[in-house]
């Protein structure tokens, strides 16, 4: 089944771009209308996983100085520059979906938007959106510990896999 464009705009932190590329499934982001990448995040990905920036129509965005709310959140949660720029962008586009795998960045982002998700959510979503079969999604989830730099407690990952296995049964 071909997924329809969900027309969502996405603001990406480095983690999901890197982890999706490690899994070979960056194409999952094609389901979104635009993928904005703040300049500092772009540079971070360029340094650690440059292949993640090739092949998708990612939009590199120069971000102006943070607004006071973002500046305070960044200090409170000791966020990196990339996360700070992503939150600044999110404050300009509060309806956008923010993708990050960092716990502190997720917590800080929730002060601006409730629409904050990460790599695991995107991979599982691929099943609902018809981008991958159930077996393919399970294969990707199982590959996370060996193929990616995304860290998750093994028993929790097994629980997630069981949830996906149970879908439609």
């Amino acid at each position: 089944m071909e997924a329809t464009d969900s027309r969502e705009m996405v603001i990406a932190d480095a983690g999901p771009l890197i982890h999706l590329d490690e899994l070979g499934c960056l194409d999952l982001l094609r389901d979104f209308s635009r993928v904005l990448v703040p300049d500092a995040v772009w540079r971070e990905v360029e340094r650690h996983r440059p292949t993640a920036l090739i092949g998708l129509a990612l939009e590199r965005v120069q971000v102006e100085a943070a607004d006071p709310r973002v500046a305070t959140l960044s200090l409170t949660f000791t966020l990196h520059r990339g996360e700070r720029e992503a939150l600044t962008l999110l404050s300009c586009y509060p309806d956008a979906l923010f993708l990050t795998d960092d716990t502190a960045a997720k917590l800080a982002a929730q002060a601006i938007s409730t629409r904050v998700h990460g790599t695991l959510g995107l991979v599982v979503r691929a099943l609902r959106r018809g981008q991958r079969s159930r077996d393919e999604v399970i294969g990707l989830l199982r590959a996370i510990p060996e193929r990616t730099t995304l860290h998750i407690r093994p028993t929790l990952l097994r629980e997630v896999i069981s949830q996906v296995e149970a879908v439609g049964r």
């Binding site: 969900s6 969502e8 979906l97 716990t103 997720k106 998700h117 990460g118 695991l120 959510g121 995107l122 991979v123 599982v124 979503r125 691929a126 099943l127 609902r128 998750i152 929790l156 997630v160 949830q163 996906v164 879908v167």
Partner: peptide, 14 residues
């Protein structure tokens, strides 16, 4: 956050 993420992935409305 992982649990929320998976719920969104499986049952989200987007």
């Amino acid at each position: 956050f992982v649990r929320e993420d998976v719920q969104w992935g499986l049952h989200g409305g987007d």
